[in-house]
Write a protein that binds this DNA or RNA. Sequence first.
DNA 1: AAAGAAAATGAAAAAAATTTCATCATTCTT
DNA 2: AAGAATGATGAAATTTTTTTCATTTTCTTT
Lengths: 222, 222
Amino acid sequence: MEILIAEDEIRIADSLKKNFLQSGHHAIIAKDGEETLSMLHKIQFDLLLLDWRMPKLSGLEVCRKIRSGGSEIPIILLTALTDISNKVEALNAGADDYITKPFSFTEVMARINAVARRYKSSANSIVFGDNTLNLITRVVTTPKTQIKLTDKEFDLLKFFLDNRGIIISKELICEKVWNLPFSPKTNIVEAAVKNLRKKLEETTEQKFIKTIYGEGYIFFGD
Amino acid sequence: MEILIAEDEIRIADSLKKNFLQSGHHAIIAKDGEETLSMLHKIQFDLLLLDWRMPKLSGLEVCRKIRSGGSEIPIILLTALTDISNKVEALNAGADDYITKPFSFTEVMARINAVARRYKSSANSIVFGDNTLNLITRVVTTPKTQIKLTDKEFDLLKFFLDNRGIIISKELICEKVWNLPFSPKTNIVEAAVKNLRKKLEETTEQKFIKTIYGEGYIFFGD
DNA sequence: AAAGAAAATGAAAAAAATTTCATCATTCTT
DNA sequence: AAGAATGATGAAATTTTTTTCATTTTCTTT
């Protein structure tokens, strides 16, 4: 993949770039917001890793400009702060995901692989464990039976599968699966997870969705 | 495509074969039911055109045997009679479609192209007119807006799209979309067509689904 | 043009899916 | 171990989807 790293802290940027190269990807560094935008116009990237704090134009502003220009390039925001309003802002600005600093390279790679999987695959089924989700019919085929998923069950499972092995927060799920800005008044996510778990784990007798207390969920399976 | 023509009337079989060759397909003729089965075991075919009345084993019996053997090869039954019980029997036996004799070659080709399209394509969207149906999200993108389809709307539209340009009877729709043996007591098909038409034709201001009085529906668009 | 069959339609009914809410269980912090 | 926060859950409420039904419209045949 062709990755654009927008990060003004040279040490972080370099370290990321080196790691990407080792993983078989190609990365270019942009040092500020303006350079990021001009780079994007010149070269076709598959992913943008975008720092929140940057000179000239903040990551958030860059993100907004990219989306208002109609581009659908996957964007992962790197943010130094943990507080929720930041995350919500990030998603509202059009980011696909966010990672809070300090981050491990493993974490970054897991998310990048998710993006890669999502944008590469045109297959119409996804295998997890010894089950298969048919993306067209929305039927999960297990060794025992077949389970027909409802709309929301499908959307949620698909989101989990697209982000296997990554901790995903409820805010992100809410934003991506329901297209709602996360509001803590509701517990739709919990309820939907409950339904999906019941349907999935009751028949397969396996655990797929693990709860990470205070952080979100993580999906296991292959 | 590699097509097996199971037909004992030599004139019909030969004429079909000649036409297929001209359309760039390859066809082989089997003269009776037993030969059909043994051929299928020897060679990998993409489609079976199966006559209802044949020596040794009837088309229906052949059809049942093939399906009970687990094969999913597309089967189109050629039947001389028009009556409904025959059609229902055909579908119950595992046929994908049926054509009543006398048939025009154009009719046969239209159905064969449908089969080809269905089995070839692994794309996750279908274009019709200047609209696109995303098979994963089940959203139709028109030049004006986007329309999210419900379960049944999607299934029905998909079935129409897979069979563009072919008259499809309500029995067939009922059997394939609802997995129900057609019962004339209900008008689910009409109702579903109404809903789909409303949703689709209201926003696009185009006609896609034409009613063929006494025969069924036909979908235009491409 | 009239009669009869087939199809379309709006509204009601039924069924299914989704969300909310109150309560219970679990996990974390101290 | 207790208290506080977070997550799970069953049941009810709500919303959406699907189906039925009665009526109107359209089409075909005579």
